[in-house]
Amino acid sequence: MTQAALPRAGIPTAADILAPSPGVLLRRRILRHWGLLIGGTILAVIVLMALLAPLIAPHDPYDQDLARKLIPPIWHGGAKVTWAHPLGTDQLGRDYLSRLVYGARISLLIGVSAMLISGVIGTVLGVIAGYFGGRVDMLVSFIVTTRLSMPVVLVALAVVSIVGSSLTVVIWVLGLLIWDRFAVVMRSATQQIRAREFITAAQALGCSTPRILLTEVAPNVLNHLIVVATLEMAHAILLEAALSFLGLGVQPPTPSWGLMVSEAKGLMFFDPWLITIPGIALFALVLAINMLGDGLRDVTAPENRG
């Protein structure tokens, strides 16, 4: 609006200037949120690395060369150091950088898959419990309580030791175990939305229940869902690392960060970089996802939903 078009005492009235749309506000908040931006960038880099692994990795991560084993990374100095292996090699002479790059694929694959499985289970249970309430809610709450009374790591260990361990088994075990937070958060978010009058208005318009759930409830609980999804993804990645470390996760020679830590534990005091490099990678990935999740929670805070 031009200066000349402001006729009234130089005071722009609220009618002249419409408040920015929720989309614009969200974009502005995202651009102001440093944690979210940093977390998002680190995560994007790791995802790119995973996607482009064949292009980035200088060697085949499975190629062993015992003649060139335990070369330290380049910053160590010494005779063995070579630019052919910037992060050195492990005890079987495999290129550590290549294994790290391919390991990102495993970590992300497990994180995303387990998050998707648990997300579907938890969201369906939570939304149904929150929307219908009453007996349905009681039943779902009971199932959630039952699930919460089972220690995740112990159950995962037991299952894996019975059915044997593989990538698929790890994904399904984690996916079927960590949906509780989805259910709890979606339930309370749905309950809040359920009480709003636009739900009653939709019912009075003759909308079917699936339609109300999909078009009226879902868009309003999506922000909570995204936040929980990031947190659970980080959770799944850490659990995979723990299981792999205990030898019950991904099986060698698959390059997994948890497994890399596990394989290096015998050499911890002689070649500490074998543990610190995958450890730092894991730390950076989980930190990035958590920063992103926290950031998303901040920028989608309730005030822009009013």
């Binding site: 009234r8 005492a9 130089g10 005071i11 009235t13 609220a14 200037i17």
Partner: peptide
């Protein structure tokens, strides 16, 4: 109601 942000005259 006019916005009360910033200076106003009149």
């Amino acid at each position: 109601v006019p916005s009360l942000v910033g200076k106003s005259i009149g």
